[in-house]
Every structure is written in C-alpha cells, then in structure tokens.
Design a protein around this nucleic acid. Structure first.
Lengths: 335, 335
DNA sequence: TTGTAGGCGTTATCAA
DNA sequence: TTGATAACGCCTACAA
C-alpha cells in the first residue's frame, strides 16, 4: 500500500491540510514545518494519488493525440514530439489511431466523454464538420498540428504548404528543368493537397512554364500510390525530366517505379520529395526533399496545449514553422 | 457537468446502490427496476466516473508499453498491435519511450510506482537486473514482447530467433552461396543478437561452410551501422557473395553501401534482411527478408496481459510465433 | 431485493 | 499560519 497524505501528516505531526499545502502551495506554510513535511514526504516516497485528485479537480493529466496511424513514420515522429513534452509536464498522452475513419474517431470521442481528458491534439487530417462538432462537444482545449481550420478558431502548428510547393518548383526550375510533373495529394485535401499543388503551379507559371493536366497525377501520400501515379504519369508524359511528389513515400514509390523500369534517377528523371522522413536518406539514390520540421510540430503543438491548459484565458497564436530544402541525390542539373 | 449516479438514481426513483448494481451486477436487480434504470442511464448518457471507481478499486484501466522509441517502425508496428487490443478492452495505454536509457526507464517506473497502471508490456530490450528489480517492485503483471528472460518468469511473446537465423543461412545456401557474411546485432544482446548469429553460424557449419571472423561485422540494427558494417565487411572480405543482416534497417544500409559503391545487388552481392518492415518493399531492389509477425507480437502480448489481469491466478504460457521468408529482389541464385 | 452509510485520498473553504 | 471538514462519485458491507 502506498503512503497517503494521512501517513505523512501523522509522521510529520501536522494535519493533512498542511501536507496538502506543502505539496500545492509551499509558500503558504511556515518554513520549518515545510521542511519537516518535505523530509517525511521524501522518506515515505509519498505521491498524491492521481485518482483522488482527479476526482476532486477533474484534471486528468491526460491529453489525447488523434492521429491517423502511428505506424506511419510521419505521425510517429510528430507524436514523439508530443509525448516528449507531455512527459516533461508529467502528463500522459492517449494515442488514438483513427485510420482516417470518422466512426472510429467518434468512438474515441465518446470514450473521452467519460474517461475525460484535459485537452486534445488533432493531427494532420482536415477538420471536417463532424470533427468540429465533436471538438465543441468535448469542451476541452484543442490544438491542431500539421493541419488547420478556418472555422473553429483552434490554434494550429503548421508549415506554409503553399510556399513549400512554390519553393519545390523553384528548386527544380533552378536546376534547369522545364518538363516538370507533379504527384499531388488529393486536391480536396486543404492541407497537404491543394496548397502544395497550387504553390507549385504558381511558381511554374511565374517562370513561364505550365503544369498541364497530363503532367499531374494524384496519390494518397503512400508508396503504392506514388508508384502507380508515376506509372500513369510516365505513360502520359514520357518526356518529363523532373517530378515533385507531395510526400516522401510517394516520391520513393515514384523512384521505385522508374528504377525498376530501368530509368536512371536522377540522370533521366529527377524526383523531389516532401517531408524528409528517415526513409529519404535510406533509399538509393537518397531522396532530395522539402523538409518539414515534423518532430517540432508535435513539440510546439503540445507546448501550446499545455500553455492553454495552464492559462485558459490566454489566447494562443497559431504557428507557422519553416520548411527547408534538403539536397541529396535524386535531383540532377539539366543542361 | 456529466450526470452522476445520483442523477440517475433520482430520475429513476431508486437508490444509488440500485443503479450501481444495475451497472455492475445486473442480475441482482429486479427486472422492471433494471429496465427502468437502464433506460434512464441511456437517456442521461450516464457513464461511471473513472476517477471515482479508480479511487475505490484501484484499477486504472491503463497499461504501459515500454518501448525504445516509437519512431522506429518496428516498435511502431508492434505498439499498434498492443493499442488495438487495449482499445477493444476499453483500456488506455501509456507509451514510454526509453531511448534504451535505463535512467529514463526508472523515471517512468517511479511514476508508475504509485499504482497508476494495471500492467505492463516490456518490448524488445534485454531484461537486465535493473529491469527485473523494477518490475518486481511494481507488483503488476508484466508481459514481455519480442524479448524474454530466464530469470523473472514473465510470460513472453517472441519468435524463435535461433531458428530464424538458421533458416536465413539455409536460404542463402540453397541459393548456391558459399562465401557468406553476416551483419549481426551486438552479441551481448540475448534476443536479436546472439541467437540469430548462432543459428546462422550453425546452419553454415552443417553445410560444411564456416563463418570466419572476417566475414562478420556488428551493428546496432539501424541504417547507419548497417552501412558502416558493410563497408568494413567489404574491406575485409571483398569475395563475399551474400550477406545476412539481423535487421531490415541494417540490410538496407548494407545495400545502400554496395549500390552507392556501384556494386550490383543482387548480381554481385546478395543481401538478406530481417523483420520485414514496410521499408523492405519500398527500397529498390526490394529487400528479401526474414519476416517477423511484428504486429501480431504486440497483439498477442496485450491479449496475454489482459488475460492475466482478468484472471490473476491463471498462469500464462509464453508464445513463440512463426517467422517466414519473404522473397523479393536482393538475393540472387549462384551458379 | 433494496437502501443506508462508510470509506477510497485529495483539495479548498472556513474558522480559529 | 494551521486544522477540521465537506465535497468529489463510486462501490459494497450490512441492515432492513
């Protein structure tokens, strides 16, 4: 049996209220008594029982992270950023793998109704009406990571995806490419889909190039869809000299298609990725890519959530983190 | 404010004990009353407050998963297996990233000390004396996943690593290879290190081949150490025609070294991995590898833990799951 | 079969 | 500055 506040009180010969005060508001206790109580606390190894505090305060010291799938390296990395902050704050984070399934998500939400969490970090999926309503019902602070939402007004931590797409195109152009294609995420995806696509297109346009439809293919951010998208792209536009994929997994899929087809990357076709996962440096040739500060997004999002948990009134500013081009071996110079 | 047992009692015009009984021992309540209470429970959306129950019962409905790093795809996959089971059981799993750091581990343990978890799944690290003691102090059921321990007598879910190493060698031999090398994990590692190495060696011996020291290099299971190990191996034994690496990440590192050096895989040198991560099929050439049922290990371990939580006296048998050779493109036939 | 009451460990209020 | 006490919501002896 773990020691309780009563054991401490008895041994230190004070009342339980004093012990409680020492733990929660140390400065309101006379120094000598405080020291004495502190010593007993250490001797006994006393720790407040979280259920008792939870019962009273209804603060659970638990936050939830809603992510599509921890098995995906992008989310794993981001989650790690969240967990590190939570641990430092002595909080515990419940991980919720939704597999992008709304009913799965709602199941979690109803679970939280009772289980009670202090706050929630929502990662990466677009914030649909369903989600918006569920968040409002929950009545806990919400922070968005790698996604955002006009409606709702929750603070977010993101990257400037439009700008990142723009920079991706600029990089390819600077390397002398003109016949450029793109493997985009779904254009309905307001986060990693359309903005990257539009930024990319805008830069091309500025440079007097156009992104015609036969040079665009859509994927779902994973290896297989990247592979298939490249197959389709290559069938339609065999003249392409460079392709930008909106995720590293798709870029690796695209490379795989080319390589397995006997097409040299980057000599014949350059490939540019997005994310900068571990994977990017493990493949050969190593992937040149637009890096997102994935870990840091998780870290900042969690920090933001705890800030609002501690100061409910202080409004939090959304954060846009910088991206960066990581040059490796899949983009070649043209002419 | 969520409805409490009192709200239900008042509305159903019964006492709170009756409500409690309806929730916990339905058959001990008169049918009509039971129905009535059930209806009110549904109307109000009542759910018992977990803090109150926890305070009384000291069951937290939370288990912990101690893993080195969720960012590592192997652990992420295994963790997913754990989480899926826990969710089905309406439990919550705390994830503990130790980064293989004992002090980090002990920090978590002291946090758990205060009976904050019902049980624990320990993943993949060797069970040293430190860990053993900490588990015993905790006094909660422990299950080992992808690791085991002579001392302690905790049930485990593993793969037969010796046999898997043996089968890896057999596969290479059957493909006509004789000059065979290995990139092993640390030989002090009693799980994924020595057994795979020894099984591999034994099969070679049986076939009249020997695994001389210049054909062995050690790594730490990650890409970089695989890359370096291959560099070293290749320097010492340029005649090698096949290499078995004790993890996919090392195998990919080894391939990367060879490929980047202009050595054809598998035509000049074959590479065989271990794990069968997603990564294995994403690289080009796609990695031939010994598959571990990673997700399933997590799944079974969690199932086993919940079984002992529900029936504390029933002893649990350790489980050895089957491995399997996945043939892809990095192992070639010789002669 | 049902209800009453005590206790789980904590914190905040109030009085001294 | 300190201590007694009343919640917080639930569960289960025990009594009726």
């Amino acid at each position: 049996m773990n020691p309780t506040i009563h054991d401490v009180a008895k041994k230190a010969m004070v009342s339980i209220s004093t012990v409680s005060r020492v733990v929660n508001h140390p400065q309101s206790v006379a120094p000598e008594k405080r020291e004495k109580v502190l010593r007993v606390i250490r001797e006994l190894g006393y720790e407040p029982n979280p259920f008792a505090s939870g019962l009273r305060d209804r603060r659970t010291r638990t936050i939830a992270a809603i992510i599509p799938d921890i098995t995906n390296p992008f989310y794993a990395e981001l989650f790690r950023g969240i967990e590190d902050v939570a641990r430092a704050q002595k909080n515990n984070v419940m991980i919720c793998n939704t597999d992008q399934d709304e009913s799965r998500f709602l199941e979690y939400m109803s679970y939280f109704q009772k289980k009670r969490i202090d706050g929630l970090i929502f990662v990466s999926s677009p914030v649909t009406e369903t989600y918006r309503e569920a968040f409002e019902d929950l009545r806990v602070p919400v922070v968005l990571a790698a996604t955002d939402s006009e409606a709702g007004g929750w603070p977010s931590v993101t990257v400037d995806n439009y700008r990142a797409g723009y920079d991706a195109a600029m990089f390819l152009i600077k390397n002398g490419h003109e016949a450029i294609g793109m493997i985009s995420g779904p254009l309905e995806d307001p986060i990693a889909g359309s903005p990257r696509y539009e930024g990319f297109q805008a830069a091309l346009l500025e440079a007097g190039l156009t992104l015609t439809q036969d040079r665009v293919a859509l994927g779902a951010y994973d290896f297989d869809s990247g592979y298939e998208a490249m197959r389709s792209l290559f069938g339609r536009s065999p003249d392409l000299t460079a392709v930008f994929a909106a995720s590293d997994a798709m870029a690796v899929g695209a490379s795989a298609f080319l390589l397995r087809r006997g097409i040299d990357v980057p000599r014949q076709v350059s490939v540019l990725g997005f994310d900068n996962l571990q994977l990017a440096r493990m493949v050969t040739p190593a992937l040149t890519t637009v890096a997102q500060p994935v870990y840091r997004m998780g870290h900042e999002a969690a920090a933001m959530l705890f800030r609002t948990l501690d100061h409910p009134l202080m409004p939090q500013e959304s954060l846009v983190l910088p991206h960066e081009l990581i040059v490796r071996d899949t983009v070649g110079k043209r002419n």
